[in-house]
Simulated scan of single mutants.
Amino acid sequence: MRIKELIRDGIISCKASEPVSCAVAKMYMNNVGSVLIIDDDGKPLGIFTERDLVRVVAENLGLDIPLSKVMSRKIITANTSESIVSAAMKMIENNIRHLPVIEEGRAVGMVSIRDIVRALMAEELAYP
């Protein structure tokens, strides 16, 4: 099974100049744990996760601070043709729970560790 099969509708994103409150609102509205930070061409610049939000709150930085100041800039990604097992290994090795999916340099989706586990379980149950 390939990562492409796990991508849901679109990508949830904010611009780097927008405040943390933008990411928090989108995470809440879409029931997700991360938001991709993109440029005007849709290319990923960073990611803002629940862990980043905890740091913002703990350091009392406020929700008006631009995402560019608090986003994680090191982005680990997968491509659409990558296997689910390969993506899972990246997530384990880098201790991350959200993996942006890239195609031709642009973000096309995001998969979570939950998506990966569900897919692997479904595969295992289908072929015991």
Rank of each mutant, 00 (worst) to 15 (best):
M1R: 00
I3T: 13
I3Y: 06
I3E: 06
L6E: 05
R8C: 02
D9W: 00
G10T: 01
G10F: 00
I11M: 05
S13C: 09
C14G: 04
K15C: 00
E18G: 03
P19Y: 03
S21H: 06
C22N: 14
A23F: 06
A23H: 07
Y28S: 14
Y28L: 13
M29W: 03
N30F: 01
G33L: 03
G33H: 03
V35Y: 00
D39G: 01
D40S: 07
G42W: 12
G42E: 11
K43V: 14
L45I: 04
G46M: 03
I47Q: 06
I47P: 05
I47R: 04
L53V: 06
R55G: 00
V56L: 06
E59L: 12
L61F: 11
G62E: 04
L63F: 15
P66W: 01
P66I: 07
K69A: 14
K69C: 11
K69Q: 15
V70K: 07
V70E: 11
M71P: 08
M71G: 03
S72W: 01
S72Q: 08
R73K: 15
R73V: 07
K74E: 11
I75D: 06
I75Q: 05
I75T: 12
I75C: 12
T77L: 02
T77Y: 08
T77H: 06
A78E: 08
A78H: 09
N79C: 11
E82H: 10
I84V: 15
I84T: 04
V85Q: 07
V85F: 08
S86D: 14
A87C: 07
A87D: 05
A88N: 10
A88S: 13
M89I: 15
K90G: 08
M91S: 12
M91C: 13
M91H: 12
E93D: 14
E93T: 13
N94K: 10
I96K: 09
I96D: 10
I96N: 10
R97F: 10
H98L: 07
V101Y: 06
E103W: 04
E103K: 14
E103H: 11
G105Y: 01
R106E: 11
A107R: 02
V108G: 01
M110P: 04
V111C: 08
S112K: 06
S112F: 02
S112T: 15
I116N: 05
I116K: 04
I116A: 04
V117L: 14
R118Q: 10
R118D: 09
R118Y: 08
A119G: 01
L120D: 00
M121I: 12
M121W: 05
A122F: 05
A122W: 03
E123A: 08
E123Q: 09
E123L: 08
Y127L: 13
Y127A: 12
